[in-house]
Design a protein around this nucleic acid. Sequence first.
DNA 1: AGAAAATGCGGAAACGATTTCGAATTTTTA
DNA 2: TAAAAATTCGAAATCGTTTCCGCATTTTCT
Lengths: 339, 339
Amino acid sequence: MAGGISLKELAAELKLAPSTVSRALNDSYEISDATKKKVISMAEKLNYHANPFARSLRENKSKTIAVIIPERINSFFAQVMDGIEEIAQEQGYHLLVYNSHEDVEKEKKIVNLLLNGRADAIVMSVSSQTSDISHLKKLHDRGLPIIFFDRICNDIPTTKFITNDYQIAFDATKHLIQQGCKKVAFLMLSKDLSITKERQRGYLNALKDEGMEMDPAFDFYCSHVEETNVKLIREMLTSPNKPDGILASVEKLGFATYHAVKETNLRIPEDLKLISFSNSSIAGLLNPSMTTITQPALTIGHECAKLLIKKLNKPKHYDLEDQVITIPSKITIRSSTIC
Amino acid sequence: MAGGISLKELAAELKLAPSTVSRALNDSYEISDATKKKVISMAEKLNYHANPFARSLRENKSKTIAVIIPERINSFFAQVMDGIEEIAQEQGYHLLVYNSHEDVEKEKKIVNLLLNGRADAIVMSVSSQTSDISHLKKLHDRGLPIIFFDRICNDIPTTKFITNDYQIAFDATKHLIQQGCKKVAFLMLSKDLSITKERQRGYLNALKDEGMEMDPAFDFYCSHVEETNVKLIREMLTSPNKPDGILASVEKLGFATYHAVKETNLRIPEDLKLISFSNSSIAGLLNPSMTTITQPALTIGHECAKLLIKKLNKPKHYDLEDQVITIPSKITIRSSTIC
DNA sequence: AGAAAATGCGGAAACGATTTCGAATTTTTA
DNA sequence: TAAAAATTCGAAATCGTTTCCGCATTTTCT
C-alpha cells in the first residue's frame, strides 16, 4: 500500500501505454518479446505488484475462497483446512476463514458478510444449531458457488463431501457388540445435524441387525458446553441402567467420555468400551488408547478445493451438481474396545 | 457477484445522484433524514451490498488482516486464532489465514503474496526454519504493519507479544528438580527460534541456580517429523545416560515424549518426570495426566488484534513501537511430575 | 507490385465505490 | 429587506486494472 507503484507509473517509466504494460505482464500475444522483457525487468526493478482490488473490481473475481467451520480446536476441521489450503495455494487462491463456534447466529452474521462478493466461493460445515437454513439458501440463490463437507445441508442443491457416515457407524456399533457389549449408547451433538442423522441410522440398524432393542436413554444428546457434557455422561455412566459400550459421533464427545470415566470407578475397556469419531493423533496416547473412526480429512479438503476451483475456472461450462460424494473412513482399533 | 446491484443502479431507482446515495448509506451529515430513510429502505429492498473491492480500491484499505502460523493442528495457535478472530470480527475485519507448515520457503511465498496490499496488516509466528528474515524485513520496510507473537523476530522493530518464556521455563525446571530430578533434558525445535532461546535460558539458569551441571546431551534438538522425534526421544530415554526429567519446549514434543515412553519400560512419573508447554485440554486426559505450561493464547490473540486495529484506525497518530509485551503463562501441575 | 493480413502498440472506457468542489435552495441574521 | 449562512444535493474526478477499438507499420500472398 505505502510504497506501491502503479501500473501507470510503471508505464510512464517505460514510456509505454498502460495498456501495453498490462498486456506485457499478462503475457499477451499482442506484445513482442522484446518489450515484454523490458517491461518485466523494469517491473521487478521497481518492485511493482498489481493491486489486487483494482483487478478484482475489473475482473469481478477475488481469487478468494471463504471457509466456515464450527470450531477450530478440532483436528478434523484443522486437517480439512490444511487440505483446502494446499490446493488453493497451488491455484493462486486465498483463504478467508471464519469460525462459527457452533453458533447459528454467528453463522448468519458471517454468511451476511459474504453476500457482497468478497469471496468467489464458500466451503463450509454448518453449526450444530443450524436447522433453519434460509441464510444459506440466500447465498446459494445469489449464485455464489458453495460446497458443504461433513455437516452438510441436503436442501441446498450443490455438491457435498462426506464420509460413509452410515456404514462406518454401523460397522463401529457392530464392532462394539462383537466385543461383548450388550448396551450400547450413542453420543451426539444435535439431532438436526446431517452427520448425527446418518451415524445414528447406522448405529440403530446395527442394533436391529443384532436383534438388540434400542433403549431411548442411550440416544444421548450433548450440548456444546464441555463441562455439561462431562457431567451428563458421568451421570449416565453411574446410573443403574448404564451402558457398557459407547459410540461417540464426534471427537469432543469421545474425549468427554474419557474425562467422565476418570471421575468414576469404571475401567475401559473392561466395564465400558468406547469408540469415537476422531482425527486426533492423541487418541493413541490415551490410556487405554482410544479406538477411533478416522475421517479422510485431508482428502476431503483437497476434493472440496479442487472441485470448487474447477467450477471457478469454468463458471459457464461446469456446474456443482446436486450430489453427495462419499469418501470412506477407517476404523483404527485400539485398546478402548479390546479386553 | 451475480445478482449484485450497484450503487449507480440503486441511485437511478431512487432518482438520486450516486454521490447522494453513497452519503446517505454512510450516514453523512449532509443528507436529510428523509432521503436517508428512503435510500436505506430501498437499499434493503433491492438487496444492495457495497462492492468491497471498489471500496478497497478507493480507500486504499481492505479491512483484512493476514495471519500466518506455522501449524494449524496445535491448540495454542488455534486458540490464538480464535482470539484474533473475535476482536477482528467485532471491528469489521476479515482474516486471511496461511499455514507455513514450519517451512521457511512456504513462509517466503506467503509473505510475497502479501506484498501487494491484499491485507492491511499481518499477525504472525515464524516457522522454526526461519533464520534469514529478509523477506519479513521487506514487508516491514514496505510499511505494512506487522505484529509477531510467540515466535518473534527481534530484529524487526515492531510490537511483539510473548509469554514469560524465560521465567516460566526457569520455574518449570525448578519444579522438576524439586520433585527429585537429577538429570533434566530440554527438548526444542530449532535453536534459531526466539522461544527456544528464551526457554532454554530459563532452563539453563535453573540448573545453574541449583548447582547442577548441564549435560550437552540433554540439549535436545528435534525435527519437524513426528516419527523421527519419537525415535530420537526413545533412543535418549533408553541410553545409559538417560534423563529423569524432561522439559518440552513445545506441545508436540511433549506428546512425542509420551509416545516414546510407551515404547519403553519407563514409568511416568516414577522413572521420568515430564512437563511440557501445551494448551491442549487433552493433557489432563493422558495417563498419567501431563503437567503443562499453559500460555494465555486467547489473550495473546486478543491483544494482537486490538493493537493492530488501533494502529489501522489511526495510522498517523499511532505507531507500533519496538517493544516486547509479556503475558505470563501458568503451570498446571498434574501427575506427570508428582510421584 | 499492389492488396491483404498480421504484428505491435496507444487511447479511452469501464469496473463501483468515495469525495472534492460547487451550486441551488432554504433558513437565519443584521 | 438584503445579505449571510446553513442545508441538501449533483457533477465529475479518482483509485489501478483490463479490454475493446483503432491505427500505424510490417509481412505475406497472388
